[in-house]
Design a binder for these strands. Structure first.
Length: 927
RNA sequence: GCGAGUGUGACUGAGAGGCCAAAAGUGACCGACUCAAGAUCGGUUCUCGCAGGAGUUCGCAGGUUCGAAUCCUGCCACUCGCACCA
């Protein structure tokens, strides 16, 4: 059988598909699906392939179901990454150049132009489009755009004016990780060290010392009432600095940090730690206390000075105890202030003693501190004289009081240090000003989103809890940037809109993007978009009202989108953000309907990663295996939401399977017109496969669909061929099957099927051919059961022969007699297995058989348990005549067994084994 | 650490209280066809068994049930997310 020339076949199909997938509003029902548009900063690998191919399979399926299907694509180019890449390439960074030249195979003359960031996205978006087309994606390329198109910017401006009006954006100060060397905030992925570090908010408690203030940093301001002393590290050099005009004493490091946190700082003098020891300081809430020496005080931690609450802080307790053991400061005793269940007056002391800790440096100290802190926070209550509030509340109220009356300030610090930037510099906390925030923390907004989420279809269902959690967890999002590509904030043009924030409702933009290209950007005022998307106001005085109305119709027709497809790592940002923005901008009838969340990709068992070079480029895969093979492998190796593993050996075998399919359909073209039982059986089975394939695709189960549409039919054909009379190549059903089979597989392997469709006499493109519909008339359950019975019997014969050591010369099948069938039916229909035997024995004929009858009842009970319920149900309907089935199939059975086969009624046989015959399980006698 | 999810035979992966020794595909082995290799086709692939059977398995340890890969509890391992970044 000649194999298809895939390349030629692909070219022919691509030619036929040109402009075929450019849907306009129609009277038919629509199906609008979107994917997260790519950021084209590198070449596509096979992982990307799946992201776009799975939705394409779904798109093609619904198109064949008669829907008007829209599958658009665009390119996300806003943000900073390409700027970084172009800089690295410009400065000759080896690693970047290797990645682009060797892995992504960018020609050197193109690479030279990559010093311009726009060249990078231009190059790769062209590549994306080329490769996506080669994959057979049924995308409407007329609607393609990039996020720096001037029309798109107008759309973003419109959206943001609404967000502003709706009070969803606000300006504020915000602490961020900041690298003074880079002069920029640093994200997680920019850190060499300390990527787990969180920013903690300390309260600076101001102690007075001579003409200066000594700020001690604490997370527990309420413990001020129990302060017995301060701790200062005698080995550290402190500084006296003017902070906003007031003299403070802090560590040198602290002075630098404070300068980044909204303070004007001038260092005046150095003060050795030793100078501070034994000095006396005052605070209105605890009176005068001395400064004591402690080595554990870290100058890099917040202000470098801490207050000591030995009753409640294990570190403080043990440090004081150690000093007192040397006979120093014996006059100081811990001051309790919090009542905690499970502890005495001095929780720190209890904890230390319970844990048997002897020394400050004991590694268990951290955990112990945490234990005491959490206990006090969750169930501690301040003593009456300190207000009697639970710690939880007191923490807030005491901090507020100190800020208001006692000059306390806030200082941010990391919980773990050091934090190091990719450039090697130390990272600090800086307070950014004038930053704009999307107020995702707004409870009203959150609940609006939650309510909508409850009505959405989510696939797989398990992701719902993750979405719910994300909605609850989201805090305000800093949504503006100073650097990068993007649209400027309309009311504050010094800021650029952050790239995740400009990609939230662009699915609406697709509906009109092809028509917008004709519009001059300056015509696209907010009123125009209000009219288009919100049906607000009358059409503004626009030079081309007809075009506006055409756009309105597009939007009204397509929106809302039916499904959005995206990888699961986007749940906690993009996928949830877009719900917030839809809720803020659109009325309920335009809200998204569903989302499908994908798993991640592996390559030969290891995580795919461009930076590690562990990628397989999609274009290479297509060239090597053919687009259909790549498609079939990607949708067939795992369901969309599962992680999948690209393995070359499995891809190879996928290619062979497509070839087998091709051969079988070609072969079916020459099949004869005779109709045998096997043909009726094949058609009957096919109806079920049609139903199951359809249901699977409706649920996005592409793997399941392929299992039914390919492997299940394939294995039916194996049996079919076995059943055909010798010499017969294939009957009428085989021929009919080819025509249907081609359509069932068309969404997955459209290139191959386009050609086969033509060959099998289909009209037009298979891409638009009607999806097969199961014909219940063709289903014959009795026939299917008869074949199943034959198969089971053959298996039984086989398993006997395997253990048998004689060479058999004759097989006798002994069919169960009618009285056994009666018992079988009685057992199968009885509700109570315990009384059934009594019922049976009421019959006189059965009583005569005595022990034989009870034994048969027992055997039937066991057998019924072991057979599929559907099988038994069908048997009870009465259309099965075992004797007839086996008699009719005698030729077949003899062929299979290669020895004579006799079929008799069990009662006619004198062989002792004949007695074990049961309905659906004839006794087999091999001699 | 916190949150969500996953853990099945050599591998990928069905399975959602009795049809389960557990689908399908891959791999491996054996046969057929070939001068031969490949492709293709047929068979076998947990252990034992001279009659269609029995035994031991579904991350680990318990529990519920007449009965558990499937339900519950605990533990272990892996994946994803934890934000100013696409």
């Amino acid at each position: 059988m000649s194999l298809p020339d895939m390349r030629q076949l692909e070219e022919a199909a691509l030619h036929a598909w040109e402009h075929a997938f450019e849907p306009d509003p129609a009277s038919r029902e629509k199906f609008y699906l979107t994917v997260a548009y790519p950021y084209p900063s590198g070449a596509m690998h096979v992982g990307h392939g799946r992201t776009y191919i799975v939705p394409d399979v779904i798109a093609r399926f619904w198109r064949m179901r008669g829907r008007q299907v829209l599958y658009p694509m665009a390119f996300h180019v806003t943000g900073a990454p390409v700027i970084g890449i172009s800089r690295r390439i410009a400065r000759g960074d080896e690693k970047a150049i290797r990645l682009y030249r060797d892995l992504y195979k960018v020609p050197s003359e193109t690479l030279e132009r990559f010093t311009d960031p726009l060249e990078i996205v231009r190059h790769f978006s062209e590549e994306y489009r080329r490769v996506m087309t080669a994959c057979g994606l049924s995308i409407d390329w007329r609607r393609r755009f990039t996020t720096v198109d001037p029309q798109y910017s107008k759309f973003i401006e419109w959206q943001w004016l609404h967000l502003h009006e709706g009070r969803h954006v606000n300006k504020g100060a915000h602490p961020v990780r900041f690298c003074p060397q880079c002069d920029n905030p640093v994200g997680d992925h920019d850190l060499l060290e300390g990527d787990k570090a969180e920013i903690l908010k300390f309260t600076l408690v101001m102690f007075e010392w001579n003409d200066s203030l000594i700020p001690t940093a604490t997370l527990r301001p309420e413990t001020i009432y129990g302060v017995t002393n301060l701790w200062v590290n005698p080995d550290v050099t402190y500084v006296k600095a003017l902070v906003d005009g007031v003299s403070w004493v802090v560590s040198r490091e602290a002075a630098e940090k404070l300068a980044l946190q909204d303070h004007e700082v001038t260092v005046i003098a150095e003060i050795p730690g030793t100078t501070l020891i034994d000095q006396v300081v005052r605070h209105p809430l605890c009176g005068a206390v001395p400064i004591l020496p402690a080595k554990f005080v870290d100058p890099a931690m917040a202000s470098g000075v801490v207050m000591s609450v030995p009753a409640h802080a294990p570190f403080d307790y043990i440090a004081l105890r150690d000093l007192q053991a040397e006979g120093k400061y014996t006059a100081i005793s811990p001051i309790p202030l919090i009542k905690v269940p499970g502890y005495g007056d001095f929780p720190a002391k209890d904890a230390v003693e319970r844990a048997g800790i002897r020394h400050q440096t004991d590694p268990a100290m951290e955990a112990l501190t945490q234990e005491v802190y959490s206990a006090e926070f969750s169930s501690g209550i301040l003593f009456e004289q300190y207000g009697g509030e639970p710690v939880r509340q007191a923490r807030e109220s005491v901090a507020a009081l100190m800020t208001e009356k006692y000059r306390s300030a806030v200082m941010y610090e990391f919980d773990t240090r050091p934090v190091v930037c990719r450039c090697g510099g130390q990272v600090f906390v800086k307070i950014l000003h004038d930053q704009w925030f999307l107020l995702y923390s707004d409870p009203a907004w959150k609940s609006q989103v939650s309510e909508h989420l409850a009505q959405m279809t989510l696939v797989p269902a398990e992701v719902r809890t993750e979405f719910e959690r994300t909605i609850g967890w989201l805090k305000d999002w800093a949504c503006t940037r100073r650097v990068g590509l993007g649209t400027r904030l309309p009311w504050d043009p010094d800021w650029l809109i952050e790239p995740l924030s400009d990609s939230t409702i662009y699915m609406a933009y697709y509906t009109i993007s092809h028509l917008l290209k004709e519009c001059r950007p300056e015509e696209l005022t907010p009123e125009v978009f209000d009219y288009l998307f919100l049906n607000k106001g009358s059409p503004p005085a626009h030079p081309d009202k007809e075009r506006l109305d055409a756009m309105r119709r597009e939007f009204e027709y397509w929106y809302p989108y039916d499904f959005r497809f995206s990888a699961k790592d986007l749940i906690s940002n993009h996928l949830t953000f877009q719900l917030f923005h839809h809720a803020a901008i659109f009325p309920p009838r335009s809200m998204p309907r569903g989302m499908v969340v994908f798993g991640m990709g592996l390559l030969n068992g290891a995580k795919m990663s461009s930076s590690k070079g562990n990628v397989f480029l999609l274009e290479d895969a297509i060239n090597e295996f053919g687009a259909d093979t790549v498609r079939m492998f990607l949708v067939g190796s795992a369901e969309p939401w599962q992680d999948f593993d690209w393995r070359n050996d499995l891809v190879h075998s996928t290619k062979k399977q497509i070839e087998r399919f091709w051969n079988m359909v070609q072969e079916s073209l020459s099949a004869g017109g005779e109709t045998t039982d096997a043909d009726r059986w094949l058609l009957s089975r096919l109806q079920a496969h049609i139903v199951k394939t359809t249901e699977a695709l409706e649920r996005f189960q592409t793997r399941q669909a392929l299992q039914e549409a390919f492997y299940a039919i394939d294995s039916d054909l194996k049996w079919y061929r076995r059943r055909l009379p010798p010499g017969m190549q294939g009957g009428s059903a085989y021929r009919a099957l080819g025509h249907i089979w081609t359509r069932l597989l068309a969404p997955v392997i459209p290139f191959t099927c386009e050609k086969l469709w033509t060959d099998t006499g289909g009209e037009g493109l298979v891409s638009f051919a009607p999806w097969p519909i199961a014909d219940p008339e063709k289903t014959d359950a009795d026939l299917e059961m008869a074949e199943e019975l034959l198969l089971r019997t053959l298996e039984d014969i086989d398993s006997i022969r395997r253990v048998l050591q004689i060479t058999p010369t004759l097989i006798t099948l002994c069919v169960a007699p009618s009285w056994k069938r009666e018992i079988f039916s009685a057992v199968a229909t009885s509700a109570d297995k315990n009384t059934v035997i009594r019922e049976i024995m009421k019959d006189e004929q059965m009583r005569k058989r005595g022990k034989e009858a009870t034994e048969t009842t027992r055997q039937c009970t066991t057998l019924i348990h072991r057979l599929p319920p559907a099988f038994i149900e069908q048997y009870l309907k009465g259309g099965i005549n075992e004797m007839e089935i086996f008699q009719n199939a005698r030729d077949f059975l003899e062929r299979e067994c290669a020895i004579p086969v006799r079929v008799v009624d069990a009662e006619e046989s004198r062989h002792p084994r004949a007695a074990v015959a049961l309905p659906l399980k004839p006794a087999i006698v091999i001699e």
